[in-house]
């Protein structure tokens, strides 16, 4: 009789339900996959990266040069470094001119808010695709639809801090160091298939001075290294900087879409 009476008690019933709910939520929390895990990032490293990201993202316009070195392997197996220079001119929200040149190559990507032009200066070829919108959107179209990824685009986007940390699993502040005589803070981050490092200038101009990506999933873990110089947040960038006029004799080429190719490959992979 007492047992029946206790069982029917509303207080006891609600307490039992509360305990079951707690136990269930605890079980769900334990069984949740790593997707819910937050990356292990040193708060100081996160703060410095945020400071750099905000500084770049809030800049109305800027120019910068970067000397880029990339590990490559010759057919003999010998490992060498290939160099090139990247020059970026950015005017938010929707203007970009990027030049990549080396001894034998010189290509440009120009975005004027309405169209994206590729220019091969050595062979005098150009091609144009129509797209519009802010820089982030144009760079996504360039990448996803046409397979064009500009080196160092992570620093051009509107929120570099957010984009850079998207897939990071851990990050730390290695400490102070100088890059070409400029005092910097050295940060190191890890994600699934790459490690990357950035050296951020100390003081009131927290710009990246050096950037290294290590491709852990490629043979011999090659590295991409960029050393930045000539940061300029003062010289204005008028419209003509972002206007492309084909030089005399230039030939217009098709710009091949890669979307269909990627989808075809993706479906084949899924079938396997």
């Amino acid at each position: 009789m007492k047992a029946r009476i206790r069982f029917r008690s509303p207080v006891r019933t609600s307490l039992t339900l509360a305990l079951i709910a707690c136990a269930f939520s605890g079980f769900m929390a334990l069984s949740a996959p790593a997707a819910d895990e937050k990356p292990a990032i040193d708060p100081h490293a996160d703060e410095l990266l945020k400071r750099m990201g905000d500084y770049l993202g809030e800049a109305k316009f800027f120019s910068v040069s970067a000397e880029v070195w990339q590990d490559a392997q010759l057919s003999s197996g010998q490992r060498v470094q290939a160099g090139r220079t990247v020059e970026l001119q950015v005017r938010r929200p929707d203007r970009l001119r990027a030049t990549v040149h080396s001894t034998r190559r010189n290509r440009e990507l120009i975005y004027d808010g309405n169209s994206l032009t590729l220019f091969n200066r050595v062979q005098n070829f150009y091609g144009t695709v129509h797209t519009s919108g802010p820089l982030d959107q144009a760079m996504d179209v360039a990448s996803e639809q046409f397979g064009i990824d500009m080196p160092l685009e992570d620093f051009i986007r509107s929120d570099p801090h957010k984009d850079l940390l998207q897939k990071v699993t851990s990050g730390s502040d290695i400490g102070p160091v100088t890059v070409l005589g400029v005092p910097c803070e050295h940060l190191a981050f890890t994600q699934n298939n790459i490690d990357w490092q950035v050296w951020i200038e100390d003081g009131p101009t927290p710009v990246p001075r050096k950037f290294v990506i290590t491709y852990k999933d490629e043979p011999n873990s090659p590295q991409f290294t960029a050393i930045f110089s000539h940061w300029d947040f003062i010289t204005k960038l008028p419209d003509f900087v972002f206007k492309f006029e084909p030089p005399p004799g230039a030939s217009k080429l098709k710009v091949q879409e890669i979307k269909a190719e990627n989808e075809s490959r993706k479906s084949k992979t899924e079938e396997k």
């Binding site: 880029v68 990448s143 080196p151 685009e153 994600q191 990357w196 990506i213 991409f224």
Partner: peptide, 11 residues
């Protein structure tokens, strides 16, 4: 291409 973290998993 190399040099982009955002597109490190693509292509």
């Amino acid at each position: 291409n190399h040099g982009s973290i955002r597109h490190v998993d693509t292509h």
